[in-house]
Write a protein that binds this DNA or RNA. Structure first.
Lengths: 183, 183
DNA sequence: TATTGTTATACTCTATAACTATA
DNA sequence: TATAGTTATAGAGTATAACAATA
């Protein structure tokens, strides 16, 4: 996941010289810089955790979603995950080849196919989730228990707000939105 | 981390099993989800703020860096910003065409060129920084003053740590690390 | 005629290598 | 010979459009 789109608008400045005051902005607490660094760190770490999984983060999302919410049609799944339906085709091809998901005909509509994880897929998902939780703790490792909780809470509020402003449509935004909102 | 699966590997399998609840992990407060959403929201908002600037965030970085630290050789600039030197060529072509930066011969080495912002470039930079600060406030808008401060602080600590673990090298994460650490 | 899923095509980014002009 | 910058080429990733089967 990396850098899709335009990268972040991180502020520049480095080098031997002190960042300098630039054209007026102190650049002190640079949100863009911090967000970019943390995001990329997490992305990299979780990519490592998802090593070998076809489709990487997206493959994980397919597994997690179909496992949690039951069999889904490709188009619905694609919409929910914010990926193009053509991408979903390739992604499922790979996951199916790996024996992690299964395409089966939708009895209600012979055009459609229902996607469900295989036993092996569920097993793999279990393992992946364990690894991902470890990854999270690693990333937040510098914070103590209560700080970690505060951070998660604040970040979550900002995220829920951001998601409301511009509803997902981003590749990695899962659909726990409802869940989060309830919290 | 491509498509094929070593560890989880393939081997056709089946699995006709229904959804099942979760594989064990509640996925409750998903750090990845929140980080992704917030990051993308900020990236999108700042991209909008940088609308029309050649190279987008990278164009901004070039302006900010050369303005803050003085004229730089292309290769140094590329290394500092974490972009390929060939990309830097295209980027500077665009910025120069827009009249925002200037390539001038390095008196010390006739092979090299020094990059500096034009007056117009400095002016543009000023404006861009103003807009970016507005963007930051928008993204954090849901939090009140003190929460915002807490969040920035916690995020910054996580970021500094993350950056130390895996020093930049990412296109947009520049290096105010030193500065931040001092803070 | 509209929709599901697939396939084929094109476009964007980035990375690699080759080329020039200097050193 | 090595380096700064440029240009050309090839690859991943994604988006667009056309297609077959069904509704």
């Amino acid at each position: 996941m990396t850098s899709t789109s335009p990268g972040l608008a991180a502020r520049a400045a480095r080098g031997v010289e002190p960042p300098a005051s630039a054209s007026g902005a102190p650049v002190e607490s640079d949100l863009g810089w911090a967000l970019g660094v943390v995001f990329r760190r997490y992305a990299k770490a979780s990519a490592a955790a998802l090593e070998g999984l076809p489709g990487g983060p997206r493959g994980y999302q397919v597994l997690a979603t179909t496992n949690a919410e039951g069999p889904k049609r490709q188009l619905d799944l694609a919409a929910q995950l914010g990926v193009d339906r053509t991408v979903m085709t390739y992604l499922l091809d790979d996951l199916e080849k790996a024996g992690l998901v299964q395409r089966r005909p939708d009895p209600a509509d012979r055009r459609a196919r229902l996607i469900a994880p295989t036993d092996q897929g569920v097993e793999a998902l279990c393992d992946l989730e364990r690894r991902l939780r470890t990854t999270e703790e690693e990333v937040l490792g510098i914070l103590d228990e209560s700080e970690r909780a505060s951070f998660r809470l604040l970040l979550q509020r900002v995220a829920v707000r951001a998601n409301a402003v511009d509803p997902l449509h981003n590749a990695c935004a899962l659909a726990e939105t409802d869940d989060v909102l309830k919290t």
